[in-house]
Design a binder for these strands. Structure first.
Lengths: 337, 337
DNA sequence: AGACGTCGTCGAAGCGCTTCACCAGCGGCG
DNA sequence: CGCCGCTGGTGAAGCGCTTCGACGACGTCT
């Protein structure tokens, strides 16, 4: 293993000089810097992470707590995780992966062991058990999602209320009078995951404001669940012509079920999905959707954490503006004469 | 921050004793051990990861390199990653997440910096760039997937050749005479990812052995790609009645396309999927499938790494036996009279 | 011309842990 | 009864790095 001391000897300078060349915390003459850099390259030196963490009290690692849930749409989580990782690397940081299996105490362990300088929590619930621990340890953190009381916390999320409202507006603009929200799995609502409830709230409110008839149903993944949910909605409110779907896993089944039941999209019913663009584009017909900016959420979370490390106060909500893209699945409400 | 020295003082023993209590590397009297453990709990002590890594030259971290590909089925990757993380925790290890964005040099960086003791590579290609670096640095590693030359490497994977053969056999047993393999995206084959080619090889060979007419087509995700691939196959070989699908993303589209084209599953055509059980169960009809044991792959990889750390020679292939579960999507070939 | 900053570099302390060498006490054995 | 070999404990060195204070060698200002 190559150590800093060896680099120093090779370059004919003292170890501290090498350290300063690397960190840039003191000015170094052009000449020495080049010599040191050459030695580093030549010897293939990489600083020892543990030693650095010990001496500097910073690990340059961000911990990422991802949920184990089976009721969340996995590709979105993964996309966020990957965005976090690549952004972190741009800041010279690495990412430690934690699952919620370890329980909330993982927060304490990571904070106390110096394994990570900061953490990012995904799948935040309204009353999340990890949050008191976060407050108590004073660990640097960013949340993806909103808890009930975000005071003093750094939160990033899509503005799901606006998302719901946007979808309702789009359908209202197209002349639909009866609309339904097909949401996430029931378990998601049961544990009060913010995004689902906020979408619902925004949708409900705007639907009311626009005078739309309104229905909301959770929906599991899988064909059974999807077709069951759909047929119950149509039975209860046969005149429903506008659907908002916030459930990627159910989308293909919902679409094929609509087709089978003889309802053409978008001639008879309109569908607005809340999903990543990729999913919307891979469906047939391509879906009008409010996209989930997974990458941006991950990126922003890391950037906020870095700002926080730099002493800035980043607490507060960073709500990303939703954007609706009109594609082939939504159109004017059918004439009802 | 609580240090080991503080624990030692609190318990009235020397620091080394506390260390030995924690590591269990020496026998400690019942009495002292309890005293120390109580102090640890009382003070809420967590060893400093960096200090430990520096002194012991082991970080208790496993690096996990996941691909950035968009052409792989993400939930499977995620399931593997989660299984790796939870298994690693059982061994007192954490997981560092690396994306392939950083390039093969990440292998060197991680090995040289002592960030991780070992690594797990996913999405291994036949001629993977990371492998020479692995050999050169002598870093402990386990691969999920097989490279062209696995000599001296520790590899875990589903036995995809047997998977292909199993699917072919099942269709042959049911009396199908013309079969087709709808595979992963073309890009997957182009970069010579082992699993796709091995499935193909196993399928082709067994199809030949059983005297089946045989066709293979890669298939992208999305509706367009799926229905295009399917109709081309049916055009080229209209008598194809058995399909093997190794492409989770295309499955729902394929099924709805078959339905639309008037082919009933399983009365007219049989479908065997290579996918996680969850996907098979959520389809309509539920799919006969060879399941992808994602969790077991992750678990085994970690276990092998731990054995390796214990001095065992774990090099060689660990190929998991595929298992085919008959569900509703496969049945006897239609009579051809 | 002398005092004073500034710049570039060095030496050394010390981060919190592991581990090696050592030692005291004690029971078993010849 | 004396010696040996355990067992359970201690002390100290040192892992590789960062960082603080110190210090020449300059240039600048009065």
């Amino acid at each position: 293993m190559v150590t800093l001391a060896q680099v120093a000897r090779h370059a004919g300078v003292s170890p501290s000089t090498v350290s300063y060349v690397i960190s840039g915390k003191r000015s170094i003459s052009q000449d020495t810097r080049l010599r040191v850099e050459r030695s580093i390259a030549e010897l293939g030196y990489h600083p020892h992470a543990g030693a650095r963490a010990l001496a500097s009290n910073r690990s340059n690692v961000i911990a990422l707590m991802i949920p184990l849930r089976t009721d969340m749409f996995v590709p979105v989580m993964m996309e966020i995780a990957i965005a976090i990782t690549t952004t972190a690397r741009r800041f010279g940081h690495d990412v430690l992966l934690l699952t919620s299996e370890e329980g909330p105490s993982a927060v304490k362990r990571v904070a106390a062991s110096g394994l990570a300088d900061a953490m990012i929590l995904m799948d935040v619930e309204l009353e999340d058990e990890r949050i008191p621990l976060l407050r108590q340890t004073g660990a640097a953190a960013a949340l993806i999602g909103l808890p009930a009381d975000p005071a003093g916390l750094t939160c990033v999320d899509l503005d799901f209320e606006a998302t719901g409202a946007l979808a309702a507006d789009h359908l209202a603009d197209l002349g639909h009078r009866e609309v339904a929200l097909i949401g996430a799995a029931e378990s998601v609502y049961r544990r009060h995951t913010g995004f689902a409830e906020r979408t619902l709230a925004g949708f409900r409110q705007q639907a009311a404001a626009r005078g739309l008839g309104f229905l909301h149903r959770p929906c599991g993944a899988g064909h059974e669940a999807a077709s069951g949910t759909l047929s119950r909605i149509l039975q209860e409110r046969p005149n429903t012509t506008g659907f908002v779907v916030q459930n990627e896993a159910a989308l293909p089944h919902l679409l094929s079920q609509l087709r089978q039941s003889g309802r053409a999209v978008p001639e008879d019913v309109s569908v607005v999905a809340v999903c990543p663009d990729e999913v919307a584009l891979h469906s047939a017909p391509q879906l009008t959707s409010v996209s989930i900016p997974a990458q941006e959420m991950g990126r922003r979370a890391v950037e906020l954490l870095m700002a926080q490390a730099g002493g800035e106060d980043t607490s507060g909500l960073t709500l990303l503006r939703p954007a609706l893209t009109v594609r082939e699945s939504s159109g004017p409400a059918p004439r009802t004469d």
